[in-house]
Amino acid sequence: MSTDQGQRTIRCLVAKVGLDGHDRGAHVIARAFRDAGFEVIYSGLHRSPDEVVQAAVQEDVDVIGISILSGAHNTLVPKILDGLDEYGALSDTLVIVGGIIPEDDRPALREAGVSEIFGPGASMDETVEFVRRNAPERE
């Protein structure tokens, strides 16, 4: 969605939540999103779920990409989703997760509000296209 077409640029928050200190993937996806023409905000490491929610609301993002490798996805991701819901922002924010998420944990995350989960080896093009197709339309 380029501004040349009169549409608003997709705003993305790439978030590292919890004690996970590995951020290479977050930097790679942030660069891919920037190269695709998205506006990207990077949270930095070790953010709490509340800090991620506050940043998303304050920055009025269309998409939150949560990068998590720590194994705490079943605790931290729902807290982010609940926080977005409290602000009334969950319904108009696309939430995606990247990292090592076991197949058995994915249905509960999707049921809670995660739109898609990208594991190791996911294509950057596939991720960018998913965001383009699914980012909420806003005026």
Rank of each mutant, 00 (worst) to 15 (best):
A26Y: 11
L19V: 05
R34I: 02
I66E: 01
A89C: 15
S48C: 07
D62N: 10
D104A: 15
P120Y: 05
R138N: 07
L45G: 03
I66D: 00
S91G: 08
A56K: 12
E103A: 14
S70T: 09
R138G: 10
G6C: 06
T75S: 12
V17P: 03
G83V: 10
L84N: 04
E129C: 08
E129I: 11
N74V: 13
H73S: 06
V53E: 02
V52P: 07
G65R: 00
L45V: 09
E59I: 07
V128N: 03
L45N: 01
G121L: 07
E126M: 09
G121N: 06
E116D: 10
A122G: 00
I101T: 11
A32D: 01
E139L: 14
E126H: 07
V77F: 13
E139M: 13
V128E: 07
Q7K: 15
I101K: 02
V128W: 05
I100M: 11
G83E: 03
Q7Y: 12
N134D: 02
P49N: 10
L84K: 13
R132W: 09
A89N: 13
A36N: 01
R110V: 13
R8S: 14
D105Q: 12
D62I: 04
G119C: 08
S67G: 01
I64D: 06
G113V: 07
S70N: 00
Q58C: 12
V17K: 00
G71T: 10
V63C: 03
V95T: 02
R133P: 01
A26K: 11
I66M: 03
P107E: 11
H27L: 14
G21W: 05
G6A: 10
N134T: 12
G99E: 03
E86Y: 14
R11P: 09
D105P: 03
I96M: 02
G98W: 05
V128Y: 04
M124G: 00
R133N: 12
G65M: 00
L109P: 02
E111D: 14
R31S: 07
Q54P: 13
D85E: 15
T127E: 03
R106N: 06
I80S: 06
L76W: 07
A89W: 15
S123F: 10
L76V: 04
A122Q: 02
A55P: 10
T9E: 14
A112G: 02
E116M: 15
L19Y: 11
S43E: 03
I64P: 03
E129N: 15
S43Y: 08
V40Q: 03
I101M: 05
D4E: 15
V17M: 04
D4M: 14
A135K: 01
L81W: 13
V77H: 13
V114E: 08
A30Q: 02
L45M: 08
P120F: 06
M1P: 14
G83F: 05
R34Q: 08
F130R: 07
E111Q: 15
T93D: 00
V40D: 00
E139F: 12
M1N: 08
R110T: 10
R24A: 05
